[in-house]
């Protein structure tokens, strides 16, 4: 059905092999100002050279702890904050060269974590959903909004004229999803969109997201800290640590075989769900370091049990794992000839 959907076919300019969005070397540094003259005293390197692409129709999961830059990356993709450096290419068109920010936002929409804060409390939900199409001058915005409310499981006759505070969290998040879809996007960025929901409601929304993806031929970027959810919904997973990509690969491969010690720790930190086989030791000590002044070299070396001299001296590059070039990790142990004692020796010469 997604292939014959007239909207996505019409909009598809780059062909099936062109990734829907390419992020090239994204950088975003936030200055911290303090003191009498409000001088810049430090920099938060929130996103520091992040590159990835999202293929048409796939779901890319982004995982990482707070401060790793996953939300900043999402905001950069929709243009909610300006890039310091880097390029965004949407279906072959460079942002700022071939398409404007306004055009990009037609194609990329976002759903936020806080379902209440992201809705205007003074608008009924049907007005909220119709707002974007109205501004864009699309035909019959209210009818379109009512139709979309129905699609996300909120009967328009019962719900259309309610205000956000009259809905439950799960219902509000459905409104936010409908509002994102009202712009007929091709890429929807879900930034912790189900994290604030109760587990039983979360499962309903995940089912809805899967249905909508099929129905509208959507592509998702799904940001979450819940690895179970990410595994369920994603085709590929990107792991971030302190503003950098440490590992990327197909979800099933990463869940079976983590190449980066940080990814491995993140998985080991998941509750065991087995009373006979409880976690004995925490995989990592301490909190993630502050993204102000991140550690030198590999940013994970301060918490990594395999760290050696080379790890603090040299920044590892993403290298291919096990000959499968869809799976990459940035770790000196995976980089032949990096100087780490556990690195693969053969290719080093």
């Amino acid at each position: 059905m997604s292939k014959t959907d007239p909207r996505s076919a019409k909009a598809d300019r780059g062909g099936p092999n062109q990734p829907l969005i390419i992020a090239k070397d994204l950088k975003k540094h936030f200055p911290i100002r303090s003191g009498l003259f409000n001088r810049q005293s430090a920099t938060v390197r929130a996103v520091d050279g992040v590159s990835f692409d999202v293929k048409k129709g796939e779901t890319l999961g982004i995982v990482g702890e707070s401060g790793c830059g996953k939300s900043t990356t999402a905001r950069l993709l929709v243009g909610l904050i300006d890039l310091d450096e880097g390029h965004i290419v949407f279906d072959g068109d460079g942002l700022g060269e071939d398409i404007s920010l306004k055009e990009l936002r037609r194609g990329v929409q976002m759903v936020f974590q806080d379902s209440y804060a992201s809705l205007n409390p003074r608008l009924t939900i049907v007005d909220s959903v119709a707002f974007g199409p109205k501004i864009l001058g699309l035909g019959n915005p209210t009818g379109r909004a009512r139709d979309l409310l129905g699609r996300v499981g909120l009967d328009p006759n019962r719900f259309a004229d309610r205000y956000p505070h009259e809905l439950s969290g799960g219902q509000r998040q459905r409104v936010n999803i409908a509002r994102a879809l009202a712009m007929e996007p091709r890429l929807v960025i879900l930034d912790e969109a189900v994290s604030a929901l109760d587990k039983s409601v979360e499962a309903q929304v995940l089912n809805l997201l899967n249905d909508l993806r099929r129905e509208f031929g959507l592509t998702y970027v799904f940001i979450s800290h819940d690895l179970n959810v990410v595994r369920y919904i994603s085709d590929r997973v990107l792991v971030m640590y302190l503003g950098e990509v440490v590992e990327i690969g197909p979800a099933d491969v990463i869940y079976e075989n983590q190449a980066h010690p940080y990814t491995a720790s993140l998985f080991a930190a998941m509750p065991s769900m087995d009373p006979d086989n409880l976690t004995e030791e925490p995989p990592l000590a301490g909190d993630p370091p502050n993204p102000i002044d991140p550690p030198s070299g590999c940013r994970f070396h301060t918490r990594c049990k395999f760290a050696e001299g080379v790890c603090s001296a040299k920044t590892p590059k993403l290298s291919v794992i096990g000959g499968d070039d869809t799976h990459q990790a940035a770790c000196h142990m995976q980089e032949p000839g990096s100087g780490h004692s556990a690195a693969i020796k053969e290719a080093a010469e």
Binding site: P271, E280, E281, P288
Partner: peptide, 10 residues
Amino acid sequence: DATVQIQILL
């Protein structure tokens, strides 16, 4: 965070 949560639980 997940890696801190497990430390506190243990």
